[in-house]
Design a protein around this nucleic acid. Structure first.
Lengths: 106, 106
DNA sequence: TATAAATGCAACTTTTCGGTTTCGCAAAAT
DNA sequence: ATTTTGCGAAACCGAAAAGTTGCATTTATA
């Protein structure tokens, strides 16, 4: 039951759900209508997304609107940060350095 | 056997491997030494990472150096792009707009 | 008040995943 | 030439995940 955000976005259906409710909050039924699965399956995905706080339910009468907690998405961005540094560096200095070395070896 | 990059980074060990070889290419044995698992387990992770082209093997004698394909990481960044737009907008215009609408409905 | 709609929850099944063990092969070392 | 080292692949196992089905609960509506 170790839910983290990386596991949450591993499933393609969940990514689609995230993209869908990013625009506006939606109910499980409304979400399920967009996919080829049952409402219960969507409900399970929503539960997982809720558990890792990527999504927040908001009750409204007998309906429950699920809203994307957009701030949580930054965690992924934060993880990417360490690599962004590399891929920016690598294409400027390092690559030209390696190229020089390679040509010297010929 | 449907491997994509999101599934690849779902596992915490694989994320650690990625971070490890981001600095420099390493052999399976060298990688395994950093973790509490067997070489074979690491080998399995490397296979998955290779399948989705996040990592590239480079044979050198009887050793195989696994190198991070840093460019592939951009795919995650690319997916985040759609949300980055939202989380930048939402805190400026949209939120205040919705707040106004909500108060008018009362 | 009786019924329909919207939902969550629990039980069950099938599939996938991560790990270990065992094996075989090729390269290096002795 | 024999042994050691580095590696991948296959078989197997337990745990977790994903989906389905059925049921209970709450809120609208006729």
């Amino acid at each position: 039951m170790r839910r983290d955000i990386f596991q949450a976005i591993a499933d393609p259906t969940r990514r689609a759900i995230i993209a869908l409710i990013a625009v506006q909050a939606m109910t499980p039924n409304a979400i399920a209508a967009h996919f080829d699965t049952t409402r219960q399956a969507v409900s399970k995905h929503l539960k997982i997304l809720t558990e890792c706080e990527l999504v927040q339910p908001r009750q409204e009468g007998r309906e429950i609107y699920y809203q994307l907690e957009i701030a949580k998405m930054k965690e992924i961005d934060k993880w990417l940060e360490q690599f962004r540094k590399i891929w920016e560096d690598r294409f400027s200095q390092l690559d030209s350095l390696l190229l020089t070395l390679k040509q010297q070896n010929k």
